[in-house]
Design a protein around this nucleic acid. Structure first.
Lengths: 210, 210
DNA sequence: GCTCAAAATTGAGCAGGCTCAAGTTCTTGG
DNA sequence: CCAAGAACTTGAGCCTGCTCAATTTTGAGC
């Protein structure tokens, strides 16, 4: 018998599907804190106990929903960087797309980031993997820019990607903490800090400044 | 009648004192999640209701306790930077002291940072104020280094402090997420990223590299 | 010293995340 | 097709953060 289409497996899939749809709808409408697990279970047509078999913690529901969107947006953006863009513009192409997602719902975004960045166990492992994955892809962008003729010294790709990610994370956090007024301001500040960071990666004597 | 020493005021102070001592001891011994508000109230010799008059949310107890330590450590470190240190070494003097504090209890540190960085209301305001305050002091360090003869261009102090703080926050987060093995590794990575950032702030042609 | 309103205290109780013992459904070997 | 047990489902109930109506304490005016 085909294992993947046994009655059990089918039902499991359907349930997962129903749960994540219910969670998505309720979180969007009522916010994370404003949604109870009982509501989600009821809307998904299952018991609370079952909900917690599929998602051991409430926050896992948000991770599941939000990560899907984030991964889609991030990987689309990373894969669609126009060839002709400079290193910084290429990075901003990605960050702008991600910021657009975060702009959809600040409460959800904040809750997600908070638990994601400081999670433990599986969440922490996932976070580290994703972070270093992106740092690596940023590093690759540096190599590409250098190959294309930007006057960048031979520094560790990792170190370059690391700087970019740190600046991205900080701008994002300040924005969601309302220390940066809105998305445009945040992106502008991010651009300035990226420019300054790239300055430190240029070949000696190639600085654009003075 | 002296307002500050009325019976009421005295009792209030004593209670605040008792609560924060109880919270400190229990958090250290059992961790944040492992300590209940009932326990804290009992140990402080008051009712739960009273506890929540003084500290409207459990997390406020941790803020109160942790912030005291953090402010003490940070301001001592900022005020004791040896004159002869380079810009990066001066920054690391401060970061090392702060990292030492965070190293005392990773669970508490993570809980604190998580809620602090992504808080709302008063906590957010406090966070923003402290962050920009430190960014400002870092900016001042740049000016001092320039005055002392380091070949740094005239960039906005704010922008410089911003880069440093972003790199500090990122190293801290990776460390507490176990992506950087231990305190030494974290400080080393932080040093490398600060060096690279400072590189971008140097006067053209003064790069130490190549 | 007494009165009484304002301030402070309190713990029973509520809400919501999560558990687990009991019950139900599915699968498999014969 | 059946027996048996493995896998899955479930909601009553536990735990803990937090509230609020009732009670106690305090101090100003007399």
């Amino acid at each position: 018998m085909e294992k993947a289409s046994s009655l059990r497996e089918q039902k499991k899939l359907a349930k997962l599907e129903a749960i994540q749809r219910a969670a998505r709808e309720l979180f969007r409408r009522q916010g994370y804190a404003g949604t109870t697990t009982r509501e989600i279970a009821e809307r998904a047509g299952i018991g609370v106990g079952t909900l917690f078999v599929y998602f051991p913690e409430k926050i896992d529901l948000l991770f599941y929903v939000f990560s899907q969107d984030l991964e889609r947006v991030a990987s689309e953006a990373l894969d669609s960087i126009p060839e002709e863009l400079s290193l910084v513009d290429g990075l901003l192409h990605v960050f702008a797309a991600i910021f657009e997602l975060y702009d959809e719902d600040h409460e959800l975004s904040r809750t997600f980031l908070k638990e994601y960045q400081f999670g433990t166990g599986k969440v922490r492992d996932a976070f580290n993997e994703v972070t270093f994955g992106i740092v690596g892809r940023f590093g690759a962008l540096v190599r590409r820019a250098r190959a294309r003729g930007e006057p960048l010294r031979e520094i560790e790709d990792f170190q370059a990607g690391y700087q970019f990610f740190a600046l991205y994370a900080f701008a994002l956090q300040l924005w969601l903490s309302r220390a940066l007024a809105d998305r445009e301001t945040a992106l502008l500040q991010l651009r300035m800090s990226l420019d300054l960071a790239v300055e430190g990666m240029k070949e000696s004597g190639e600085s654009a400044i003075r």
